[in-house]
Design a protein around this nucleic acid. Structure first.
Lengths: 137, 137
DNA sequence: TAATAATCCTATCTATTTGATAGTATTTAT
DNA sequence: ATAAATACTATCAAATAGATAGGATTATTA
């Protein structure tokens, strides 16, 4: 399962992508209201995305958030990794968050192969999806 | 990520499948030792699997556990659902643990479609894997 | 039939993660 | 100056993960 936080992040980003008309940044409070996300929680999420160079922010009056890159260059995998961490089902098959298993020898691990396949299938779908393509669905 | 508990369950089942020679049941303590799983934790897992009709148990001396069905009839998905619950990444796309989302309208949800695809790809892999096929890998 | 060896059951515990809220500081437009 | 926005720090409650402890029950066998 992905976390609520991650789902909020995706919804917030698609909202920003749809509502940035080029004149002014998109405000936290608008996103929170329209997408039904707790405001203070959303602040944390947006700051996270900013710190990871997905968003840029502007403070003060008429402040808000903008995508730092075109929506078609932001993949779902990138967002999910920032917010939730690994996508793989086992640490030892994670591409971005690899950790060895304490309790088994990877060379003869029975389950590793299966979960590598799951990972690859999952990434085939998720890598192909961007904030842009989500807004078109 | 799948839980440690679930990984333990899979390893325990493959161990039982490999070591049941038809004469006597496989003991918790043997599994725990060979597969490096905390004994008391493993007890809980095996009882769970028994309650869900994956294993049968025999008490007392020479007691232990056996697969209730042939290893080729026990899929990974079944085990994962018993131990960890839903396999899907969103409650609203889960086949076995469906729950509606509080915060969005499913008809126009942007992410639902993607995670249905992920679910289907994942199940393609996991449904094809059984305790039997894992022991052959 | 007593001893032994196994599962069964209930309760408990600690650490981490999840999902959030509160309050204040800082920045910016007017 | 003032209003309105983000930035930051701290805190909190509930759920989940990952176990551990101790005794009850059942079955074998010497």
């Amino acid at each position: 399962m992905i976390s609520n936080k991650c789902k909020y992040a995706i919804k917030a980003l698609t909202y920003i992508a749809r509502n940035d008309d080029g004149t002014k940044a998109v405000m936290t409070s608008d996103i929170a209201q329209e997408q039904d996300i707790p405001r203070k929680f959303l602040e944390i999420i947006l700051r996270d995305l900013r710190n990871n160079r997905i968003l840029e922010s502007k403070r003060g009056k008429d402040g808000g958030f903008r995508l730092l890159r075109p929506a078609e260059d932001i993949s779902l995998t990138e967002i999910m990794r920032i917010i939730d961490g690994p996508i793989a089902m086992l640490p030892c098959v994670s591409l971005n968050y690899y950790r060895s298993c304490d309790d088994c020898d990877e060379k003869e691990c029975e389950v590793k192969g299966v979960f590598e396949q799951v990972r690859d299938r999952t990434l085939e779908v998720l890598n192909g999806k961007t904030i842009k393509s989500l807004t078109l669905d």
